[in-house]
Design a protein around this nucleic acid. Structure first.
Lengths: 110, 110
DNA sequence: ACTCTTTATCGTAATATTGCAATATTAAAT
DNA sequence: ATTTAATATTGCAATATTACGATAAAGAGT
């Protein structure tokens, strides 16, 4: 075997896992941080910014897009990528929820 | 090749990526959520809770622990696992930061 | 039409992950 | 000391990810 048993988990769990997985690589974290830094949307500058070949960056962008973390808009022959605010917010709320519940019950453990 | 080029990225980026990667699997999301639900620390009930064999759960726990998301304390012959509040908070702050910066600059893009 | 620029896709090698049966480890209980 | 219970580790097959060279696709500019 070796295939992830997605069907055994809830949609929300799978969604969170998918977004987390997309950020589970330093290159993709770096891409998101760069997109945040430059504010306005950017395309292949990322290739110049990162120590990775163009196809590799393209692949990482694809995964971030599939997970819904970034959006891409065609603009002439180039493509404008940017962070999808909603996705980031979803993650933030998710962790805030856990964090909140933990502090509320004083997390007395171990 | 095929090995992640961790050395090209910052420590923080690698840490965030490692924590995100640990949550990048629905089973591990489910484990964290279960740990949160039961409040008091739990060990092998997780095996009963999830549709996975004991070795598989053990492996997932190991990865969550390596990423610093959970803590495990030996308690007799069983082991008490629980969420590491600090790690969750780190993630929460990280996403809150991005989210905050995006809304501040109105994220005009795409 | 041709060229240039930009991005995506294909193909492939190296490596990592996933899942579990079998087995080992460790400590409590008898 | 033996048994029992709870976890961890090993070994292995199936699958997924990572990275990149080569190539394709698609629009802009000449």
């Amino acid at each position: 075997m070796g295939a992830t048993k997605t069907e055994h988990f809830t949609d929300k769990q799978n969604t969170i896992a998918a977004m987390a997985k997309a950020l589970g690589h330093p290159a993709r974290v770096a891409i998101v941080e760069y997109l945040m830094k430059v504010n306005e949307c950017i395309c292949g500058d990322i290739v110049n910014e990162l120590p990775l070949a163009q196809p590799t960056v393209s692949q990482h962008l694809k995964e971030l897009k599939n997970a819904g973390l970034i959006k891409g808009t065609v603009e002439g022959n180039s493509i404008c990528y940017c962070i999808d605010e909603k996705a980031i917010e979803k993650m933030q709320v998710y962790f805030a929820n856990i964090s909140g519940k933990l502090t509320k019950m004083k997390n007395k453990c171990c």
